[in-house]
Simulated scan of single mutants.
Amino acid sequence: MTAQPIHPHQPERVPRNAEGIAAALSGERRMEFYRQLLAAAPEQAEGVLRGWWCEAMLDTDPAGDRLTAAALDGTLPTTAVADLVARRQEAGLPVE
Rank of each mutant, 00 (worst) to 15 (best):
58 L>F: 04
36 Q>D: 14
18 A>P: 02
69 A>E: 06
14 V>S: 03
67 L>F: 04
66 R>A: 15
67 L>H: 10
90 E>H: 01
40 A>V: 02
68 T>S: 11
78 T>G: 11
60 T>Y: 07
72 L>D: 09
34 Y>E: 12
33 F>D: 04
73 D>V: 01
38 L>G: 04
66 R>Y: 15
26 S>K: 03
44 Q>R: 13
66 R>H: 13
29 R>T: 15
86 A>I: 05
65 D>Y: 05
84 L>W: 09
3 A>D: 02
54 C>L: 13
87 R>A: 14
49 L>Q: 08
25 L>W: 05
55 E>R: 02
81 V>N: 13
34 Y>N: 03
94 P>S: 05
23 A>Q: 00
12 E>G: 10
73 D>K: 00
66 R>V: 10
45 A>I: 13
68 T>E: 14
85 V>R: 09
78 T>A: 09
72 L>G: 09
72 L>C: 07
85 V>E: 12
48 V>K: 08
25 L>F: 13
23 A>S: 02
11 P>G: 02
40 A>K: 01
6 I>Q: 02
65 D>L: 15
27 G>D: 08
52 W>D: 11
20 G>Q: 05
89 Q>L: 04
60 T>C: 12
7 H>T: 13
33 F>Q: 04
28 E>P: 12
91 A>F: 01
19 E>D: 15
73 D>N: 06
48 V>C: 06
88 R>N: 15
30 R>C: 14
35 R>W: 08
90 E>D: 06
95 V>I: 11
13 R>N: 06
32 E>T: 11
64 G>A: 07
77 P>S: 10
36 Q>I: 05
58 L>I: 04
5 P>G: 00
35 R>N: 09
22 A>T: 06
11 P>H: 00
79 T>C: 12
86 A>G: 13
16 R>F: 14
64 G>W: 02
58 L>A: 03
31 M>G: 03
27 G>K: 00
84 L>R: 09
24 A>F: 00
31 M>S: 10
41 A>I: 00
60 T>H: 03
20 G>Y: 01
14 V>C: 14
84 L>Y: 03
64 G>I: 03
96 E>W: 08
4 Q>W: 08
45 A>Y: 11
39 A>F: 09
69 A>T: 09
6 I>P: 01
27 G>R: 01
1 M>K: 10
34 Y>C: 12
59 D>K: 01
84 L>I: 12
68 T>W: 14
30 R>F: 02
38 L>M: 06
69 A>H: 04
67 L>V: 06
49 L>H: 12
59 D>Y: 01
16 R>N: 02
81 V>R: 13
74 G>L: 08
45 A>T: 15
32 E>S: 11
47 G>C: 08
24 A>Y: 00
87 R>S: 15
28 E>R: 07
47 G>D: 10
95 V>C: 05
33 F>I: 07
71 A>T: 01
14 V>A: 01
44 Q>S: 14
60 T>K: 05
10 Q>P: 04
34 Y>K: 06
65 D>E: 03
23 A>E: 01
65 D>V: 09
90 E>A: 11
51 G>E: 03
78 T>F: 05
73 D>S: 07
31 M>Y: 06
38 L>E: 05
47 G>K: 01
91 A>E: 01
81 V>H: 14
24 A>D: 00
15 P>C: 09
60 T>I: 10
76 L>I: 05
51 G>C: 02
63 A>F: 10
47 G>S: 07
29 R>D: 07
